[in-house]
Design a protein around this nucleic acid. Sequence first.
DNA 1: TTTGAGATTGATACTCAATATCAAATATAT
DNA 2: ATATATTTGATATTGAGTATCAATCTCAAA
Lengths: 147, 147
Amino acid sequence: MNDIKKQFCNFLKNNNLLLTAQRECILNYILSTSYHFDAEQLYVQMKSEDPSIGRATVFRTVKLLESSGLIRKIRLGKSKSYYELTVKKKHHEHLVCQNCGKIIEFIDSGLEERIIKIAKKNNFKINKHAVEIFGICEDCFKSTKNK
Amino acid sequence: MNDIKKQFCNFLKNNNLLLTAQRECILNYILSTSYHFDAEQLYVQMKSEDPSIGRATVFRTVKLLESSGLIRKIRLGKSKSYYELTVKKKHHEHLVCQNCGKIIEFIDSGLEERIIKIAKKNNFKINKHAVEIFGICEDCFKSTKNK
DNA sequence: TTTGAGATTGATACTCAATATCAAATATAT
DNA sequence: ATATATTTGATATTGAGTATCAATCTCAAA
């Protein structure tokens, strides 16, 4: 069992929760994907592997994974929540193309520093932050010009 | 008629839309408030002034106001959308207290510059951006310590 | 191995925010 | 005045997520 699974097992144990077949199955799938996902999409995927699984279980497990710190919620301008793995990945921000939906991740230490400074200046105990930049990506911009 | 109203009228005219009593009423109210609001809250307010107004009309008008550029959508970590006036107000970001819900607005030119640079570096036609910092505000932090 | 308290499940109903539908009412141009 | 287009409010519907609950599963203690 790898470190990430162990981390989740510990979380479950510490909260008197059980590692069930469904939870393990969902965890496995999430670990095998490296990109953003949402709960509904995950449900459809799990359903295709095990038709007996329920929507509620998937949504509940996503919440658990979030509480455990394994995944984090991100908002990409849509009404629904997306999630991404927190492990094996540095914190980063998002460029969201409003035309094709493509998401470019970036890190910028200068940006992070400023955010920390701003929180400090306002006597704010910072917990998390999010920077989203919306616009048109290079590819889409090129193809609209060609029309 | 003030500039802001004119701007909205122009927008309506340019799109073959009419300035109706309901739309004007909603616009007036929005101009009289200077803080964040959401569509449902606005509906309740308008309903108290004119009980015959419909929910759909308020939600539609909010969308119109957004398209016209008079208000902008902001996401404050909740599932619903909030809006704020874009005029008479410089663009700013938000510090959101996860305990009491208080919202502190701030501007930081260094932050803005970096965001523009990042977009440029990624050949991204930037349209808008959002920075949200979540945490515990000074007041809440103090009062938790006293317990 | 049985038992029983507690955790988990899936189905379902429900909430909440927002959108779609549509007939009736309004406005506009001719 | 009339034909055309826009807007309205009521209502139904969607989409995302949560609450409920009886049935099932787990596991430690007897």
